[in-house]
């Protein structure tokens, strides 16, 4: 069978679908001081999952606010800098109006994913962290 680390090189999706792959990618991103990008990506997925479940509206709102505060609010943050102003305004508007929507972070997640695909993921595959592991 194909070793997992070769699968990780196939696509970002294959990498993010494997616990060890995520761990190694995170180690690399930490070195580059941009691990928040990966955390944000997973936070968006987790939020969508929670949103799809019944009840617990208070928790959903609290979580949406927490994601907004940690990753979007500070314009100098590594995640915030890579999300389009219109996307940020949309999220801010949702939070301010307490209008919590399961898809409210989808566009931001797509933008962050594009950054990873074009930038950090190819760099990771050429990095010492990955090459030493293989």
């Amino acid at each position: 069978p194909t070793p997992p680390y070769l699968k990780w090189a196939e696509s970002l999706h294959s990498l993010l679908d494997d616990q060890d792959g995520i761990h190694l990618f995170r180690t690399f991103l930490k070195q580059e001081e941009c691990a928040d990008v990966l955390d944000f990506w997973f936070a968006c997925s987790g939020f969508r999952k929670l949103e799809a479940s019944e009840g617990n509206e208070e928790k959903k709102l609290k979580l949406a606010k927490a994601i907004y505060k940690k990753y979007i609010l500070d314009n100098n943050g590594i995640v915030s800098r890579q999300i389009k102003p219109a996307t940020k305004s949309f999220i801010k508007d949702c939070v301010m109006r307490l209008h919590i929507d399961p898809a409210m972070f989808d566009q931001a997640q797509t933008e962050i994913q594009a950054v990873m695909e074009e930038n950090t993921y190819p760099l990771f595959l050429k990095s010492d962290v990955y090459l030493e592991y293989t």
Binding site: I22, S45, K62, A66
Partner: peptide, 20 residues
């Protein structure tokens, strides 16, 4: 603030794939 962080952490973990 701690509970907000815990909530975020829990959310991030929930989205990660389980060990195969």
């Amino acid at each position: 603030i701690d509970s907000e962080d815990d909530l975020l952490q829990e959310c991030i973990s929930s989205a990660m794939p389980k060990k195969k």
